[in-house]
Amino acid sequence: MNEAQTVTEQPTSAPTDFEAFVAARSTALWRSAYLLTGDRHKAEDLLQTALLKAWRNWDRINRREAVESYVRAALVSTYTDWWRRRWNGEVPTGELPEHPAAAATPEVRHDVLAALALLPRGQRAVVVLRFFDDLSEARTAATLGVSIGTVKSQTARALATLRTSPLFETGDRHE
């Protein structure tokens, strides 16, 4: 990239479309990134990286209804790339970033993250997209670039792993 080409260059299409998309969907996308990484700071980095990919390709994303699928696919592929490179992220500063308010108790959030951490990355991605982002099997398959059968088998394996997890042996852990 030369000096004339910077990351801040805007695509030729209306930047307000991108800004509107980010304003409307960033909370849900951040949640997906958080569930994938299990860390607030890494989730923010992951989301920013995925949104940057969308920004750079904004003119090429022909159907605006496909933008969210594009960004979700970028989240998963970037997350996988980071894991393959053993990316550890940046060291956070003393000031914590803002984060969306959650309805679940801290104990429940901890249990969900602990349960997701038990799963291999592919199964974790399927569970996050299917159950937390409420995508259909077909949309999950399209987002991940796999077959619907793969989504079904990964879901079944993930649920079997979670059912046998010590985290879920009793239903009254937090009472």
Results as ranks from 00 to 15, higher is better:
residue 69 S to W: 06
residue 69 S to V: 15
residue 70 Y to G: 03
residue 70 Y to R: 05
residue 71 V to M: 01
residue 72 R to S: 07
residue 73 A to E: 01
residue 73 A to C: 11
residue 73 A to K: 07
residue 74 A to T: 04
residue 74 A to I: 07
residue 75 L to S: 01
residue 76 V to Y: 00
residue 76 V to K: 03
residue 77 S to V: 09
residue 77 S to Y: 06
residue 77 S to M: 13
residue 78 T to Y: 06
residue 78 T to V: 02
residue 79 Y to Q: 08
residue 80 T to Q: 12
residue 81 D to V: 09
residue 81 D to F: 06
residue 82 W to L: 01
residue 82 W to P: 06
residue 82 W to F: 01
residue 82 W to K: 05
residue 82 W to I: 09
residue 83 W to V: 15
residue 83 W to T: 12
residue 84 R to A: 07
residue 84 R to T: 12
residue 84 R to Y: 09
residue 86 R to P: 04
residue 87 W to G: 02
residue 88 N to W: 12
residue 89 G to A: 03
residue 89 G to H: 07
residue 91 V to H: 15
residue 91 V to M: 05
residue 91 V to P: 09
residue 92 P to G: 15
residue 93 T to Q: 15
residue 94 G to Q: 11
residue 95 E to A: 15
residue 96 L to M: 13
residue 97 P to T: 12
residue 98 E to V: 15
residue 100 P to N: 05
residue 100 P to H: 10
residue 100 P to D: 07
residue 100 P to G: 06
residue 101 A to E: 11
residue 101 A to L: 04
residue 103 A to F: 11
residue 104 A to Y: 11
residue 104 A to N: 15
residue 105 T to H: 10
residue 106 P to E: 01
residue 107 E to H: 08
residue 107 E to I: 10
residue 108 V to E: 05
residue 108 V to H: 08
residue 109 R to K: 14
residue 109 R to M: 10
residue 110 H to T: 10
residue 110 H to R: 13
residue 110 H to F: 13
residue 110 H to L: 06
residue 110 H to K: 15
residue 111 D to Q: 09
residue 112 V to L: 11
residue 112 V to N: 06
residue 113 L to A: 11
residue 114 A to V: 13
residue 114 A to N: 07
residue 114 A to I: 10
residue 114 A to K: 09
residue 114 A to L: 11
residue 115 A to S: 04
residue 115 A to W: 01
residue 115 A to N: 08
residue 115 A to P: 03
residue 116 L to I: 11
residue 116 L to K: 02
residue 117 A to G: 14
residue 117 A to C: 09
residue 117 A to N: 10
residue 119 L to V: 06
residue 119 L to H: 04
residue 120 P to W: 08
residue 122 G to H: 12
residue 122 G to N: 05
residue 123 Q to A: 09
residue 123 Q to G: 10
residue 124 R to H: 01
residue 124 R to S: 03
residue 124 R to L: 04
residue 124 R to F: 06
residue 125 A to K: 06
residue 125 A to M: 02
residue 125 A to V: 07
residue 128 V to G: 01
residue 128 V to C: 00
residue 128 V to A: 00
residue 129 L to F: 05
residue 130 R to L: 00
residue 130 R to M: 07
residue 131 F to P: 05
residue 131 F to W: 14
residue 131 F to L: 09
residue 132 F to D: 11
residue 133 D to L: 13
residue 133 D to E: 11
residue 134 D to P: 03
residue 134 D to S: 05
residue 135 L to G: 07
residue 136 S to Q: 04
residue 137 E to W: 10
residue 137 E to S: 08
residue 141 A to N: 00
residue 141 A to R: 00
residue 142 A to I: 03
residue 142 A to R: 00
residue 143 T to E: 00
residue 143 T to P: 03
residue 144 L to E: 02
residue 144 L to S: 00
residue 146 V to L: 11
residue 147 S to C: 13
residue 148 I to L: 14
residue 148 I to M: 09
residue 148 I to A: 11
residue 148 I to G: 12
residue 150 T to E: 04
residue 150 T to R: 10
residue 151 V to T: 03
residue 152 K to R: 04
residue 153 S to P: 07
residue 153 S to R: 14
residue 153 S to H: 13
residue 153 S to T: 11
residue 154 Q to L: 15
residue 154 Q to E: 06
residue 154 Q to N: 10
residue 155 T to M: 14
